[in-house]
Simulated scan of single mutants.
Amino acid sequence: MPHPLATPALASLSRPPVSSILELAQLDSNSFRGESHTGVRRVYGGQTLGQSLLAAGRTIEHEHHPHSLHANFVHPGRSDLPVDYHVERVRDGASFTTRHVRAVQGGRTLLLATASFQRDEEGLRHQDIEPSPVPPLPEDLPHFQDSLTISEAAEANWLPPLMAGVGIEFRFPEEYPRLACRRGENGPPRQRAWIRTLEPLGDERLIHAAGFAYCSDLFLLSATLPPHARHIDTPGLQLASMNHAVWLHAPFRSDEWHLYEQHGYWMGGGRGISTGRLFDRKGTLVASTTQEGLLRFPL
């Protein structure tokens, strides 16, 4: 049965405001500073992704919009210190604009990213993928914490730090594979969740692109683990995101519900690779992601 006390206990947590995280202070024409606004020690990877894309976009003076972000995570960051973003103006073209971003904290490079922007244009369209099976709507699903059994809630010491560290609401159409893995059960390397930012983000298109970049890191690498009945709390696991890519196919609001389907299609050599597909309520593909990460378990 669901744990009746899970919601009040977690409701008291201070959740990070994504709208504030995506407010950058401009230091000069090519440099910006971002804050964390979280109570956890380590910077959430999606924060540096979202802030990097936003910093790059703030240097563009014409109607070009983000369509891709490719990033390499170099060092972990601390949430109690600001992160500075230094933007290199690589190219300003009629159709495409390219920016290179270096995220720095205390003299250490946390992330290197390349962002590409495009002028809106018409062209041929198709998508050869759709959600399968069709999921229940997010309004018909419980908050994740309300779906836990008493025993699951008692063992979910990983959940409060997760919810305190990211300003994202999520609801699972099926059981979250992490729960089955904790029971020692394996399964296919697939998972999906309805996601959105916790609060409205206004109407600026760049903010919503950065908002999804912020959300895109959530759960993604863990999709590689169900075939092995492992989870990211497994004792001795070394876990780190290494590189991450986001493609934005159409404008959308990251503060509205979208279905994020994830597939951990390869694992080996202490690394894993997952892909993600983001669908709107009509099943239209609006964004895609890929992430490679370190998943080193003790032998």
Rank of each mutant, 00 (worst) to 15 (best):
S116N: 14
Q118F: 01
E185I: 11
G187Y: 08
D146C: 05
P160M: 03
D120S: 11
R125K: 14
D146R: 05
P131A: 06
P138H: 09
A154G: 02
R178S: 06
A180I: 00
R119N: 09
P135H: 08
I150L: 15
V166W: 08
E121C: 13
G187M: 11
F172P: 05
A153V: 05
E174G: 08
L124R: 11
N186I: 11
R119W: 13
L112Q: 09
R182H: 00
D120R: 12
W158P: 03
F117H: 00
P173C: 06
H126G: 12
S151A: 15
T109D: 15
D140W: 01
C181M: 09
S151H: 14
S116Q: 13
W158A: 01
R119I: 08
L159I: 02
E174R: 10
L141R: 06
F117L: 05
R178T: 07
D128R: 15
R190N: 10
T114Y: 00
P160I: 04
A153K: 12
L110Y: 06
L112C: 12
C181H: 04
A113H: 01
N186R: 15
L148Q: 01
F144K: 07
Q118L: 00
F144C: 12
A180V: 00
A154I: 01
I150P: 07
G165K: 00
G167A: 09
F170L: 10
L159C: 05
M163W: 09
L137C: 12
W158I: 00
E174V: 09
M163A: 05
H126W: 14
L124T: 09
E152V: 05
Q118I: 00
V134N: 15
F117D: 04
R119Y: 12
E174P: 08
I150S: 14
A164T: 03
A180T: 00
S132F: 06
A153L: 06
M163K: 08
L162R: 08
G187R: 04
P136H: 04
I129G: 11
P138L: 09
R182V: 01
D128K: 10
G187V: 04
P189C: 00
Q191P: 13
I168F: 07
R125E: 13
P188T: 12
E121D: 11
